[in-house]
Design a protein around this nucleic acid. Sequence first.
DNA 1: GCCATAAAGTTCGTATACTAACTTTATGGA
DNA 2: TCCATAAAGTTAGTATACGAACTTTATGGC
Lengths: 141, 141
Amino acid sequence: MDNLNDELRDCSVFLLGKAYQRAHGEFKKLLEPFGLTNLQHLVIEALVHEPGLTAGELGRILILDKATLSGVIQRLEESGWLEKRADGDDGRVQRLYPLEKSVEIAAEMATARKSFDRRFLSGLTPGERSTFKRLLKELIW
Amino acid sequence: MDNLNDELRDCSVFLLGKAYQRAHGEFKKLLEPFGLTNLQHLVIEALVHEPGLTAGELGRILILDKATLSGVIQRLEESGWLEKRADGDDGRVQRLYPLEKSVEIAAEMATARKSFDRRFLSGLTPGERSTFKRLLKELIW
DNA sequence: GCCATAAAGTTCGTATACTAACTTTATGGA
DNA sequence: TCCATAAAGTTAGTATACGAACTTTATGGC
């Protein structure tokens, strides 16, 4: 039991999962007024930054499976956040464009995200914060 | 685009999610021979450590919603990993006990988990590893 | 002893996430 | 040109995750 708790506290998969769970749970609340989930907001931000991205390109940027993205994009299309248009050259490709309501809130969401990030890491010193992000990046890429 | 990638690489929620995604994905493969998922293996380990835990206690240890655990426990019961027994004192409570096949593989799984952890963090120096886990713990608890 | 309240689990609905199988469209080689 | 192969998306199936509503059982105040 104590033994077990010690093992959990030394297990990277567990620690990463729970830290993500906590960050995600709090960020979720912040996004609620916008009517978007975390992943949906990332897709919208990406499309506002670069309209016309394909699902495949989005997947590479957001490090996500095409099957997962397929559903996310479908829901965002149904609720009027984005639009699919056929690519002129390649019949397999659908290019994705943000609709007005996406463009309108993108900047505000980006601000909220950055402010959340500072708040979430406020218990760490500036040096710890940059170390933390550096180590995460080394593990991802 | 570059702008966007920079923002993603500075967003804790994104970095934590992707680091977890990577760790989880690799650990999943390691657990495949056992026929258990990451979460299922944590439940089994906990029950072998402390037979008779309730779903509520498990939820506090593993930091998990009772609704999520309900499903996980159900599947583990159906596939013969654990057993529910009514608590003698409290009619609301079901105590959970590991079955033989759980007890048999628990030690081997724990070894595999620790070995995976070392491998996953092998790109970091010993100092970085301990800093990394310390910072994650500060963000969780 | 009775009732309001709380606690333990279950169920439902929604959204990730991934694998595998499939459809449609492109492309390259013979 | 024709065909094998590959690439882009979709769909189905499984397993997390969580909030909300609900059932069943305990408990505390009176």
